[in-house]
Design a protein around this nucleic acid. Structure first.
Lengths: 205, 205
DNA sequence: TATATTATCCCCTAAAAGGGGGAATTTAAT
DNA sequence: ATTAAATTCCCCCTTTTAGGGGATAATATA
């Protein structure tokens, strides 16, 4: 019997997957959690074989949680669950110890296949995901914002001008402008509007 | 028997809800769709009692689809399904003819209750949603983007200048600039960066 | 410690956006 | 049929951003 635990902040998805797996004879429902702490508490007493993990958790990022769990309990096979096809995120999940990655448009068949694959110690990614990984080889992981850049970009997105930001941060206008231009260059976008969109779509701010 | 149809772009959610409802004796699974066209095709031959609709569909906004369905098939009771707690969106769904609204963190109990409620002609919103509606009375509904404004804003967010947008849409630069300025005024934001942020945060684009 | 990155500031010019008006023509809704 | 809303275009002028350079000090990081 494969013991499967799920962490997802949406009750409906938990119950939906529970119902999906219930018909599988070799899969045992270990339980579910909506918050990272619940999961960590659970793991103190019990150890599931497979952990399905939504990577868009509200409090903690799935990436960090994945890393943490894998360090403490290396025996647990983690399958990331998300709507995101971002190659960079998927890669990072795998780097952080996940054994698999499923998009939420996976089918029942795929999720069961994934569970069976990872308990054997193999890695599973479903078709759409592997497509995403292939198609976006060029699409490297996005550059990271430095602390200052994030600070500036936050204020830009709130509608402040370079001058206003400079005043707030007690810096020169040219400094703010440099940061702005650096960000445009490093993310390869044409102007601030596109920068803000990219940043919001990728949870940079 | 209550015939329930679901439209959602995520296969896993479709199958999860399917599995959830399967144990209910008075609920019959009418089918599912991932795209609006599939749904519209289905409705040409059959008529479900309840339509569960994810409002964050990729192609068409749930709001429009809801309106369209209700006009053509007033007998169908629509329940909006979403992760968004935005009062403005929920209100608009109801205005556009939805009989209910469920967050994806609803439980099995709630979804079944919702189905039973709406077929009686009543309106159902789950606890979290009604809380959201109450708490955000101050949070007025955001102005709506007109079709043209949305078109322009999409292009602005992609990084095009007024001139480039004008060329694309075969309009004068001043027209695009007017739209841009109108949007700044109607959403009461200081510049394009803030406009893009607001639009993305509220699913306007 | 040597090297790379980050953060800060400076110059210049051209392009784009923003702020204030106004006005005519379509479209949609009552 | 008559409003109301949306779409289109125009003026003037100022502020802000973008693009091209470059330079120096402060932190990390190997």
């Amino acid at each position: 019997m494969i013991k499967v635990f799920i962490i997802d902040d949406h009750q409906l998805i938990i119950e939906g997957i529970h119902a999906l797996l219930e018909t599988e004879k070799d899969i045992e429902w270990a339980g579910s959690a909506k918050m990272p702490e619940e999961l960590l508490n659970f793991l103190k007493t019990e150890t599931p074989d497979v952990l399905l993990m939504d990577i868009n958790l509200p409090q903690k990022s799935g990436l960090e949680l994945c890393k943490e769990i894998k360090q403490k309990y290396p025996g647990i096979h983690i399958i990331g669950l998300s709507t995101s096809e971002q190659a960079s995120i998927i890669r990072k999940m795998i780097e952080n110890g996940a054994s698999g990655y499923l998009l939420k448009d996976a089918s029942k068949k795929e999720i069961i296949e994934a569970i069976h694959t990872v308990v054997k110690g193999k890695t599973y990614v479903n078709f759409s995901v592997s497509q995403a990984l292939k198609n976006k080889t060029t699409n490297e992981a996005l550059p990271v914002l430095t602390r200052r850049e994030k600070e500036v970009l936050d204020l830009i997105a709130e509608g402040f001008t370079n001058q206003e930001i400079a005043d707030k941060l007690f810096l020169d206008v040219t400094t703010i402008n440099s940061h702005r231009k650096n960000m445009l260059t490093k993310y390869n976008v044409k102007n601030t509007a596109a920068l803000v969109k990219l940043a919001l779509n990728n949870n940079l701010i």
